[in-house]
Design a protein around this nucleic acid. Structure first.
Lengths: 101, 101
DNA sequence: CGGATATATAACCGTATAGGAATATACTGT
DNA sequence: ACAGTATATTCCTATACGGTTATATATCCG
């Protein structure tokens, strides 16, 4: 599954946001997401398959930590639109400036 | 459907990339996407519902043009990860610098 | 009006997805 | 070895998605 599809799912975005701050175990993420443990494990499997998280085993616990690198694909896709957006903002500013006069 | 789900679909990304350059009719997009006309119309309906395109009727033709603004949501989501990415790049650079010595 | 063109909608199909419950696996501490 | 804890996997279900074909709607032109 590519990064676009991975982040299309709200719960997975939540998981990413969580491990972005610090590594988490599955149970920690269960608490955060309010999903069943199997559901979280499944999402983590998907995140791992997309290389968006890295797993560090620690006894019976698994620490999941972020690997943001695959998000670059999304970032690169957005690049030309970002320019478009700033142009739009410029247009808006210009428009408001004109209204002020 | 939110912007995340809209851009999860490769053909929809292709349609967006196309109308980003210039407004297009449905048949123009059918040529580009290599899909059936109804398939394209459905994707356009989704893009329109997400406000990612605007339709300008012109006789029997419909000109679809880009409205990139809803992509800001995705852009904002990526923001903290972008920082993460540049850090990673810095780390890589540092690593390579060390290898050079 | 009538045929051709442009687009949208409807009906249907196969597949993917997300979720839960139950179960399996693996590690911990006594 | 055993009870408890942490995680993964299996099985099942309901729903959403993307595609096609067929049909409807609307516009253009002779």
């Amino acid at each position: 599954m590519d990064a676009f599809s991975v982040i299309a799912e709200p719960n997975r975005r939540l998981l990413l946001e969580t491990v972005r701050h610090r590594p988490c175990t599955v149970n920690m993420l269960v608490e955060v997401a309010g999903l069943s443990q199997p559901a979280v494990s499944k999402h983590l499997k998907i995140l791992k398959s997309a290389n968006l998280v890295v797993v560090r085993p620690d006894g019976q616990k698994r620490w999941y930590e972020l690997n943001a690198q695959p998000l670059m694909e999304v970032d690169e896709f957005l690049e030309p639109y970002r320019q478009f957006l700033s142009n739009k903002l410029d247009n808006l500013e210009r428009h408001l400036d004109e209204m002020d006069q």
